[in-house]
Design a binder for these strands. Sequence first.
DNA 1: TCCTGTGGTAAACTCCGTTTACTGTAGCGA
DNA 2: TCGCTACAGTAAACGGAGTTTACCACAGGA
Lengths: 146, 146
Amino acid sequence: MSRLPPPALIGALLRVPSQAIHRRLIAELNAAGFRDLRLPHIAVFSYPSPDGARPGDLAERAGMSKQAMNQLLQSLEQLGYLRRIADEADARARIVRLTRRGQAVWDEEFRVLEQIEQEWRATLGEKSFEQLKRLLQKAWASDAVP
Amino acid sequence: MSRLPPPALIGALLRVPSQAIHRRLIAELNAAGFRDLRLPHIAVFSYPSPDGARPGDLAERAGMSKQAMNQLLQSLEQLGYLRRIADEADARARIVRLTRRGQAVWDEEFRVLEQIEQEWRATLGEKSFEQLKRLLQKAWASDAVP
DNA sequence: TCCTGTGGTAAACTCCGTTTACTGTAGCGA
DNA sequence: TCGCTACAGTAAACGGAGTTTACCACAGGA
């Protein structure tokens, strides 16, 4: 792709690297042996760990409907990455439990993300990178991110 | 949505505000009277202006196939936001031209994005915001964003 | 014991992007 | 000039992904 000059607006400045990281993550997970994982599955394997969570909460975190999340969970269950067990405290509810393979995905994902962080550190320098993260966290904490 | 503690990893720190901006943009465009615009259409109305560009280039910029971009352009043409005229210099090619209404979308989008920037400025302070953008541009320019 | 709200599920539908395949033109080399 | 290859765009079939609509089962209080 022919590289365009960096735009001035914050929207694109956030979007482009975010998409790049997303694509790289799924590519590296595939390369690490999790061939049957596809892009939307990442919505499940997202901070914090889905282990112990309820489907409805995962849907809310991911910003999608309960039904859509349930389809993802169903597919991941068939692929052997997790199980949905009954919640003993509430017979209506279920709880997501990662299998050993699912936990391996979580670990690998964390490894890749740390690798990416290392690269950003190398590019920006330790201090600048930390400040970048601090600024983004501050924006997150405010109402700028609804 | 119950607010989670800000995560430590750069991936999510970029993704979440980016998605929030995206959703807000399409919502405000709809509210501004462009009711028939939907989320994927934003891929066309993206920096720099699609006016004068060729479909293939727009596809490349957006990171999608020519066919997918063409569907978007076709739909936007039916809705009256643009036209695809012949390129006199190359009989194979076409050129996208925004209609008056399409230009209005572009203007409104820019207005919204500037409004969002104002809010970030207010949250982070002028200096910090400028540095945030500078750091993101630096990361963009490097190989951290492939 | 109702009755309302909650958690989850199921199926139909819609949107959207890719894959596959094709048309017509540009541009180069023989 | 002819012919071949590359390029720009288009069309249709396909598949995946999420929403809408509808439903069931249980919780918890009136």
